[in-house]
Write a protein that binds this DNA or RNA. Structure first.
Length: 584
RNA sequence: CGGGGCGUAGCGUAGUGGCUAGCGCGCUUGCUUUGGGAGCAAGAGAUCGUGGGUUCGAGUCCCGCCGCCCCGACCA
């Protein structure tokens, strides 16, 4: 039993000045965590109880799935990370240190290398596969800007598992097993979450999904529809309209449009001087051609032009995900000088494409389909072409998902309009493929005695982050409201008043409930009722029992923290009623 | 790394060059009080982030440094 008279706990009446998001404010106010340095926190007794419950649930579900737990050091040597290139690739985010001999070490941000090497040292046959091993480990990332308290720290606890399979089918099975285990885990944690497909970019195009806990404080933006579609913004697929038959479409015609270097000025001039027969022109009638430079890791670079409806901006994150490993950057004056055929502000697709004289690759938004007619640059200053029809008057080299996704855009699966939302990444499952196995030479012999590179998956759950995510999703203006399984206790007994009978009854009740198998937090302090009630609401134990003034009538009160509902029950029935309230 | 804000007691804060740095919470002691962060009284607790400068005099003005928070960039 936890007695508040001796519990190491100090709640704060006021919000800490440096806390912004609800989980940070409440975890500090309720005395569950304390900051020791930016992005580094200590867990105090009640907080550590919650943390351990989360960790326990994660571990139970991993074990239930048949995965095996190991434990690596957090302090790691440089060499394995040198081999995979991450010693340098990870950059400043990698927390490095030296031992007394000047040797390079790091505090592990993630452990792909160590797992791969461990398996390499032990296994050498396909008969040993599949294998999944995991650990629950403190990880370190020297974040440029830790923020939001526990949500994004420099030290945090992650469950990371790794699967090892001989072939792609095996990898898919290991991936699916993790997906199932994660669903069970997050359900038990009481987290609302969505599973979004994530871009794995240039990492080989393999499957990757993120588990996001929707909440205001989330750092990841995703979109979802009423009908259940959810995806990372980077992964959203644009719904393309049906192509239009080319017959009978008006012929293209070039018009003078002086001083119209922007879409706004163009639309204004078009409406004033070349009005549409039936309706006003809008930005969506124009085809904007955005010029970019792609820089490749090998040092080469080349231009790329993206054609998209004039009412859309290029979303840099989506673009980067599409062109990786190349890095896009704006086209500079110098670049324009090298390409005199590009007339700044008046670029049109007639001169673009790999097959054209310019040879510049031209990719369009999926909304630009054959038969659509556009107002676009005529490749000379002050002139635009109207009714330029895709597939008749110009061609393109391919499509690209680089345009911004807007609220109201249709979901690709037809499940309704998309709305953007924010979420906390609480889990990520990822088919790594053979990248690490190849780099570290993890091979096994197959049935034919041939050496084959193992294929891997990596799967993470932010354990400490999940505590904060739960707090984000389960609180009100009075404090925390823990889901039962992660709560620091099942029942919080509040004794009010100074009547010795109150305290003796409360004590007996606490002992009886503990005997019945409940985890009991008992407020036996000599504090005023207001203090105790407020603390009980701040701490967020799901069931609260008040033993106080109604005891003279032989009654105690049972409150449900989440709903606020309360009922009075006779003392004699209290144990049974509390057990019922706790779902026992 | 860019932009903005802030460093005064454990926490939250006031203090626009002039007396002994003020208040609330929390803490200690005593008495009273006990169904919504109690009352009275008496206390303890601060090198005002740090180094330098200006001044008769600096928490207050100037410069450097350090640290923290927020937005952005970054983020397996």
């Amino acid at each position: 039993m936890l007695r508040m008279s001796t519990l190491f706990l100090r709640t704060l009446r006021e919000d800490p000045a440096d806390a912004e998001v609800p989980s940070h404010r409440l975890l500090v106010r309720a005395g569950l965590v304390r900051r020791v340095a930016p992005g580094i926190f200590s867990w105090l007794p009640l907080g550590y109880l919650v943390y351990r419950n989360v960790e326990r649930i994660v571990r139970e579900e991993m074990d239930a799935a048949g995965f095996q737990e190991v434990h690596f050091p957090a302090l790691l040597p440089r060499e394995p990370y040198e081999v995979t290139g991450r010693w340098t690739e990870y950059g400043d985010t990698l927390l490095r240190l030296h031992d007394r001999k000047g040797g390079d070490y790091l505090l592990g941000p993630t452990h792909e290398e160590m797992f791969t090497l461990l398996v390499k040292g032990e296994y050498s046959s396909y008969k040993d596969l599949p294998l999944v091993i995991y650990q629950i480990q403190t990880k370190y990332r020297d974040e440029a800007r830790p923020r939001a308290g526990i949500l994004r720290g420099r030290e945090f606890v992650m469950k990371d598992s790794y699967s090892f399979d001989i072939d792609d089918e095996g990898l898919q099975r290991s991936y699916d097993r993790h997906r199932e285990a994660y669903i069970k885990t997050f359900d038990r944690l009481g987290l609302e979450y969505v599973i979004v497909s994530a871009m794995s970019g240039a990492m080989g195009g393999s499957a990757s999904e993120e588990f996001l806990a929707p909440c205001e404080s989330g750092e990841d933006t995703f979109v979802r529809s009423e009908g259940g579609y959810a995806a990372n913004v980077e992964a959203v697929v644009t719904v393309a309209p049906e192509p239009i038959a080319l017959e009978g479409l008006p012929a293209a015609h070039v018009e003078d449009t002086p001083d119209t270097p922007t879409i706004e000025t163009l639309v204004a001039v078009a409406n004033a001087e070349h009005p549409h027969p039936d309706r006003p022109w809008t930005a969506a009638d124009t085809l904007k051609n955005v010029v970019l430079r792609l820089d490749y890791p090998d040092g080469t670079s080349r231009p790329l032009i993206i054609g998209l409806p004039g009412d859309r901006e290029v979303d840099m994150k989506r673009l980067e995900a599409q062109v990786a490993p190349a890095v896009p950057s704006p086209f500079e004056e110098d670049d324009f000088t090298k390409h005199p055929e590009l007339v700044k502000g008046y670029i049109g697709p007639q001169v673009l494409g790999k097959e054209s004289p310019s040879g510049i690759e031209y990719l369009v938004d999926p909304r630009v389909v054959p038969g659509t007619a556009w107002i676009t640059g005529a490749n000379e200053p002050g002139r635009h072409v109207f009714d330029l029809v895709c597939g008749r008057d110009f061609t393109f080299d391919g499509t690209i998902e680089a345009a911004e996704v807007r609220d109201g855009d249709p979901a690709p699966d037809g499940s309704g309009p998309l709305h953007s939302a924010r979420g906390i990444e609480i889990g990520h499952i990822f088919q790594l493929g053979r990248k690490y196995a190849e780099a570290l030479d993890l091979k096994v012999l197959d049935v034919n005695g041939k050496s084959r590179v193992v294929t891997m998956g990596s799967y993470g759950i932010g354990v400490s982050r999940a505590v904060a995510a739960i707090a984000e999703q389960h609180h009100d203006d009075k404090g925390l409201i823990w889901p039962r399984e992660v709560a620091p206790a099942d029942v919080h007994i509040v004794a009010t008043g100074k009547d010795p009978a109150v305290f003796s009854t409360a004590e007996e009740l606490a002992l009886a409930l503990e005997d019945a198998g409940l985890r009991v937090l008992y407020d036996d302090r000599k504090a005023s009722p207001g203090v105790k009630f407020n603390d009980s609401e701040l701490l967020g134990v799901p069931t609260i029992v008040v033993v106080g003034k109604r005891l003279v009538d032989g009654m105690v009160e049972i409150k449900d923290r989440a709903s606020g509902q309360r009922e009075e029950v006779p003392v004699a029935a209290a144990v049974a009623e509390v057990l019922k309230a706790c779902g026992r």
